Amino acid sequence: MMKMNALALAIFLCIIVSCHCTNINQKTNNATLIQQTCKQTPNYALCIKYLKSDPRTSDADLVNYALYMVDRIKTTTITAYNKVTQLLKGGHELYQTEALSSCAGRYRSILVDVVPKSIAALKQGDPKVAEDGANDAANDATTCENGFKGKSPISDENIDMHDVAVITAAIVKQLL
């Protein structure tokens, strides 16, 4: 009986150690995948920051990284769009009102067109559509910024959108 209990204990400990080692290996493999993925983007440090900041990426693959980044585009778009609409409520010179209205249209388009199409395309295995959408979002942010005479009142949001979008496009491109 004593030998049976010792054998059962030994087997139990082996299972625990095995599970623990597997968990460590998965985390190591995931960290390696994040690093490999981000090395192929235009901003390694920012890519690492984005991917490691969300717990959903702890056991994700490249498709899920791309989906996470499209979700990040959505969040960034909402922030920018909300700021633009707030600014439009205030009194601005005509050129600023026109530029802000143009930006609002661009950000609305990203939110209602680019993001849903990119998510659907990634889920259906068509990453080219998502890459094009991310590139469009980056271009929209640049166009928005350039629509102002000098620095725009939403420069920070435009820069954030551009950065998120080009990193997303680079990650999605790895799926092609």
Rank of each mutant, 00 (worst) to 15 (best):
K3Y: 06
M4E: 07
A6H: 00
A10W: 03
L13T: 01
I15K: 02
I15F: 03
S18P: 04
S18K: 06
S18E: 09
C19T: 09
T22K: 02
T22Q: 07
T22E: 08
N23M: 04
N23H: 10
K27Y: 05
T28A: 10
N30Q: 04
T32Q: 05
I34K: 00
Q35G: 00
Q40Y: 00
P42K: 01
K52D: 03
K52R: 03
P55Q: 10
N64A: 08
L67F: 08
Y68F: 14
M69I: 00
D71P: 00
R72Q: 15
T76W: 04
T76D: 13
T77P: 07
T77V: 06
I78R: 12
T79C: 09
T79E: 15
Q86C: 09
K89E: 11
E93P: 00
L94C: 00
L94E: 10
Y95I: 02
T97M: 10
E98F: 09
E98R: 07
L100C: 03
S101G: 09
S101F: 02
A104W: 03
G105E: 03
Y107S: 04
I110A: 07
L111H: 12
L111Y: 13
D113H: 06
V115P: 01
I119F: 05
A120F: 07
A121D: 07
K123E: 15
K128T: 06
V129C: 00
V129T: 14
V129I: 15
D132S: 11
G133L: 05
A134K: 03
A134D: 12
D136M: 11
A138Y: 05
N139G: 12
D140G: 10
A141E: 09
T143W: 07
N146M: 12
K149N: 14
K151A: 14
K151I: 02
S155M: 12
S155H: 15
D156Q: 15
E157N: 12
E157H: 15
D160P: 05
M161V: 11
M161Y: 13
H162V: 13
D163K: 13
I167V: 15
T168I: 06
I171L: 04
V172M: 09
V172Q: 07
K173E: 14
L176Q: 13
